[in-house]
Write a protein that binds this DNA or RNA. Sequence first.
DNA 1: CGCTTTTGACCCGCGC
DNA 2: GCGCGGGTCAAAAGCG
Length: 897
Amino acid sequence: MRNVQENLLLGRNHSDKQDDLDKKMSELLKVHQEVLKAQKEMFDMMRVQHEAVHEAMQRIRADAVQNVQGETAPAPAPAPALRIVFWVLYDVVIQVKVKNIMCKRLLQEFKSTLDFLKPLIEEMAESNKLLHLPEQEQEKFIIQMREGVELIGKCSKVSKWHSYKKYACTNKLLKLDESLRGLFHKMSMQIAIHVKEGLISISSMEAMIKKIEESGVIQNQSQVVLTKPQPPLHEAGLDVLDTHGSKDVEGTGDDLNEKEVGVKQIGRDGTRQNEKEIEGLSEVPENSSPKTTLDVQGTKDINESLDSESVHIAQTKQSQGTRMVEAPVAESYKFPFLMVESDVYLRELKKKIFEDQVAMLVITGPAGCGKTTLARMFCEDQEVKMKFKNIFFVHVSENPRLDFIVQQLYEQKDSVVLELQEDAVNWLQQFLKETGGDPSLLVLDDVWSGSESLLDKFDGLRTSMHKILVTSRSEFPRFDCYLENLKSLDDEEEMAHLKGKVVAAVRATGDYPERVGKPICEYYLKTGTCKFGPSCKFHHPKQGIGYLSSLYGLTQLSSPTHALERPYTSVVPSSVGPSSSSPNEQAFPERPREPECQHYLRTGYYKFVPSCRYHHPRDQIAPRTNCLLSPVGLLGNSGSNAWPSFSQVSLSMEDFQTSLDLKLNAQHSLLQTPMSPCVSISRRISSNDKSSQSDVEDKSELDEIQSQISGVTVPESLHDPLESKDQCPMNVNNTLEYAASGTTPNSVNVDGQSVTCNSSEIGSISQKQGVKEKVAFRTKSEIEILDDGFKWRKYGKKFGKNSTNPRNYYKCAYEGCPVKKRVERDGQDPSYVITCYNGVHNHTSLGKRTQRVPASHPQPLPFPLPIGKEESFTFDHLADDNQEESVLFDHLADHIQ
DNA sequence: CGCTTTTGACCCGCGC
DNA sequence: GCGCGGGTCAAAAGCG
Ligand SMILES: [Zn+2]
């Protein structure tokens, strides 16, 4: 509007009033800062804070509405469904928890998540306000909660011994828990956004008041909306527009975009003009008050401040006799703030993807930051729609299987569900050919970091007509594609400018509170991340991330179905099969902010318990072989039982490798070793072998190696597991030297000095007892019982001489299974747990007494049914798996020779 | 009630 | 033979 310039000029003449407003602004900022501070520092008080803030917000809004004198501020339809479902779930959880003996801990945890959510849900329901989650998101949660109800019901019925069922339930529960936490997170964000937007609104109102005061013009029925034609800074900064009609509540992506531009621009303007002073609260339009200083002065109770602020505004308005139209409070807080900045990204994204040379674009950012939303918005964008005739959106996340993806692609293309085809690559090629006539956009949503090979395939088949947009939590530096890093989520500073520290605080990634004395955040331990971020009330030990990964299996990040396909096999050649990336690889601690783990880079060695605190970039490690080591140990072929034996084992990686090679060469039969705590070993390429050996110089490196993998298999004699129902005496051959065991330090050498298993020893061991196989693992872990998927019964305990570090003896709970394990802490470094497995499981299920092996499957499976197996698993899967494993095995055998 | 853990007794091989 | 230490057994206690 033209008045703007006038207004601005007039405004400058009214410095007193401005000062007044300035004061108010500082107070606002102060309040804001308070909120930030509180949120950042008082995690435990988070909910309280939210409530307080929310209350304040409500007051503000109430005031606004009042001031507007009946101006419509229709509360959006509440989301009672969510609330109802939530409560149903809550009740069920409590009920089940009371009477259910199993999954207790899990339920406890789950309940705590719900407890987290409860006040938020209630609050939202009470205030009759719509969640700011996108509709689909809401529905998703409603569905999830419903499923949760059923699931928990199911769980409660699963008998104790149906271990795999239990684990399936466990996994589902965990997943649900996780997503609910995500919900919590989002809601927290929303509340933070409320605050902020409330402040924005107040600022807008004030600005308007000011203007009105200045110009003496009473603007009726108008809304303050700052719109700015793109780049040039509009000098007035304040346009009074009558645009509220165009603002709808839940709009399509496009709608949102447009609407959010306004909000964003506000922020932008403020940022640019008051960047230094304003910091977080940048969106306050202060164009007309150049003298404004926004330094924080003093502190006040949030509510009080906000309240008085509102009152003040009201008074101002009234004193001016101004009939204010509602500032965009009601509308603005309906916009997920994320969307605001999404617009910026959207533009960037469009710009980039329209460039000819760009074939693949990766959007990265932490979980829940809006990558998918951005991608969806992108797909909805008119320009994009124009450009790409075909747009396919595939949600990859837990199913990084090419065949599934192609199937989905076809489904979207033809609305026909086709059978899965075996040669997924060809299938994809075919698909690309069919769609190659027109420019097409493939969106691969949420590609996990283990799925480079998937992208490889797409990359390999890229055509000029196809562009691929990938969203992922981690970067894929190997792909020469443009990275669209949602850095506002990574970069706190940037974020602070753009959206304020509230959001930053809630969302800051990689910064988790250490709260010694509090329960440990299991999510953090399992995944190395925690969606609650700094607001999580649990302890986040910097060390030992992931030690719990074994507690529930790899459920967190892997889908049950996938776990089914590839139980525990974390090393899979990308050339084999469509499911080439194991979700288990997710258990790798990828910590982009940490220094890279040198040993991981060199050796590719992988330990299931990802206690290493360094970064493990998946795609940079040395090529790995197809050697598979299931948690049960080495994967063998069926039919042969010609194991070599050796007595001495060292920790030398090379030796270890040797033993592996020997084993594999020998084509050892099924059920190989006992479970290791999920160790998988990958072979280094030969050129790296030496370096990884000889480069070990300092102690820390040595430690790291040891911590990464200290598993040694010690086959001692021949054995047919099927015939070994009898107990295997443990004492036959005490040949096993623990990896890094304190009692045999000399044999625990990473620098090659240790005793190696030489061929002369092989076979020299007594074989009188039938199969004897030992595996020792040294694992850095705070807990001693590393869940390896089997059920164990403790049968003995011994205290050493020094009475420290008791030694516990466990027996496989499966009836007739001879496997035992001994667990003790490393005497030299108690942070390590040494687990020695002895014997070979003669079963595949986890601990059930009856085996479910159909006649068509005479041989026991080479690995146990994994945690996370679906109840509905079929042996077909397993058969497939076996096939695939043996392929891998052969491949490896070739490799070795 | 049924499974798990605890715990002292016991067994066994080894070295002195 | 004896003591020692590693390993195991099994009754009793604990737990859900
Ligand atoms: Zn067993």
